[in-house]
Design a protein around this nucleic acid. Structure first.
Lengths: 125, 125
DNA sequence: CAGCATCCAGACTGATACTG
DNA sequence: CAGTATCAGTCTGGATGCTG
């Protein structure tokens, strides 16, 4: 591959997809905790409000990370699902979790002891 | 580990460190291309200006990701170096690169063909 | 070379209220 | 339940110019 083949830096391209405030938290809850509903995310994503959540979900849909399904019931039900592309962001989230649990233990854990992110996931459900 | 041991979400903690605009690009150039000088970064980080670069470098120093060394020469020489903590962000950058080179090839490459981030690095120097 | 100071424009976010 | 509308405030980033 010649360098000219590169249109945009791959790292920056990824940052464009997940770099806005709350996007990684929404993905965290969808990928790791399998949340699917609007109010479920509204309650579980720290500090987010409905306007911003709505905005982020539409951006993620536009970017092909999630899909939106409406079930015409009463009351209305809407479910958000990860696409294959969205699911493939999981390794990034895992590395982000791993970095903090290993190298920022002082900020992250009360007992200040480093550990693996996997161990946190197993007990945090 | 009990859940109460967790002070803050590890994923969000990492996002706080690298989520601001330009921070991952500065880290990319320091970690992958071994840039160390202010003007070197100013020229190589896409679209950044000196004020923002200065701000980001100070934030990264405050967060323990880099250190700043002043060499009292004429002209003045200042070098920025990664700390061990900063170097440990490399797997996150690699996963971010890998995601785009594999799943966003249409946006990233002129030939639109997916490949591994490692292959891009080998030829992009 | 390696920044800092100032000023400004625009993007982003939040609170509140309302709808089908 | 799942949002949208409006308004206001904050935060960020960018242009320009200056310093040791």
């Amino acid at each position: 591959m010649s360098k000219d083949n590169l249109k945009v830096c791959p790292i920056y391209n990824t940052f464009d997809l997940i770099g806005k405030k709350f996007t990684v938290l929404i993905l965290r809850n969808m990928i790791l905790y399998h949340h699917t509903r609007f109010n479920e995310l509204l309650d579980s994503v720290e500090e987010i409000n409905s306007k911003t959540l709505s905005l982020r979900l539409r951006e993620m849909e536009r970017d092909g990370l999630i899909t939106r399904h409406v079930y015409p019931e009463m009351p209305l039900r809407v479910e958000y699902a990860l696409t294959e592309k969205g699911k493939n962001l999981k390794p990034i989230l895992e590395q982000m979790g791993e970095f903090s649990t290993r190298y920022c233990a002082i900020n992250v854990f009360r007992d200040k002891k480093p550990r693996h992110f996997k161990q946190v996931l197993e007990t945090a459900h």
